[in-house]
Simulated assay, not measured.
Amino acid sequence: MRVTRDVPDIRGRADLDVLLRRFYTAAFADPLIGPFFTEIAGTDLEVHLPRIGDFWERALFRTAAYRHDAFAPHSAVHSVQPLTAAHFGRWVQLWHATIDGLHEGPLADRAKAQGERIALALLRRLAGRDVSTDAPRGEGGGFVPLAALTLRAAG
């Protein structure tokens, strides 16, 4: 028997703001990726949230005016401590779990797919080579395709 939930899709900026706060709170606390935000980048969540909200609003709704270089901060962090496929894989896991805990529908699915595409694109660009998600063991750096995982929303 399939359990159905009465969960809304992502409807607009207000939903994104709640989603992003919950996601980044979890990401900052995560033992694998949290130090990249808190120790290496010294990210101020209150400064980061409006900017990243603009990014996602533009990505999902084409309404915000995001005019920043999304690659530059990742490159700066990577120059201090390399970001690996395992780090991006964990980011994607948390992203999916956060979305699944709050939303379901076409925009939620688009946000999850877009998150995967962005993570893989950043990983490839930072690595300076083509990083495949199905590379032989030891060559892909630990990236796990999310289709192979069962994620549970943090509860």
Rank of each mutant, 00 (worst) to 15 (best):
V80M: 11
L102N: 14
A76Q: 14
A76M: 01
A127I: 04
D9W: 10
D30E: 09
R21D: 15
A26P: 01
G141T: 03
P35W: 09
H103S: 05
S75F: 13
V7Y: 00
G115P: 08
H87W: 04
A14T: 12
G12M: 02
F88R: 11
F71L: 13
A76Y: 04
L107H: 11
M1T: 08
W91H: 09
E139M: 10
P82T: 02
V77E: 01
I52Q: 10
D130F: 13
G53T: 15
A65F: 12
A64S: 14
G140F: 01
E139K: 00
R129H: 09
P145Q: 10
D15L: 00
H96D: 14
R2K: 13
G105P: 05
A65K: 13
H87Y: 07
V144K: 07
T133P: 03
P50N: 01
R51F: 04
T43H: 01
T63P: 00
F61N: 09
L94N: 03
P82F: 03
V144H: 12
V131T: 10
A153L: 01
D100L: 15
A121E: 06
Q81S: 15
W95G: 04
L19E: 02
V47C: 00
V3F: 09
L122E: 09
E46I: 00
L102A: 14
E46R: 05
R124D: 15
K112G: 06
R125H: 07
A29L: 05
L45W: 01
A113V: 06
T38K: 04
D109I: 02
G141V: 11
T4W: 09
F36G: 05
R51Y: 09
R2L: 14
V3S: 00
R5Q: 11
M1P: 12
G138Y: 10
A97P: 04
P136T: 13
A85K: 09
L45A: 14
A29N: 12
D9Y: 06
P8K: 07
R62M: 02
A26N: 08
Y24C: 07
W95F: 04
Y66P: 07
D15E: 01
F88Q: 04
G53W: 03
Q93M: 12
V47M: 01
A127V: 01
W56P: 06
I10T: 09
R11I: 06
R117K: 13
L45T: 11
D30K: 05
W91E: 05
A27I: 02
A76L: 08
H48K: 02
A65Q: 11
E139D: 15
L149H: 03
H74A: 10
V7A: 10
L146E: 08
G115Y: 03
L107K: 14
H103V: 12
H103T: 09
L120I: 13
P35R: 03
G89R: 06
D44A: 12
H87P: 07
G89W: 06
D130W: 11
S75M: 07
V18M: 05
R51M: 12
Y24D: 09
V80F: 04
A127P: 06
D15H: 02
A27Y: 08
T38R: 12
L32K: 08
H74E: 11
P35K: 02
L149C: 15
A127S: 15
A27E: 07
A97M: 05
E104L: 13
D69V: 02
T63F: 01
T43M: 13
P145E: 09
Q93D: 13
F143D: 00
L120C: 13
P50V: 08
F61I: 03
G34I: 03
R125S: 14
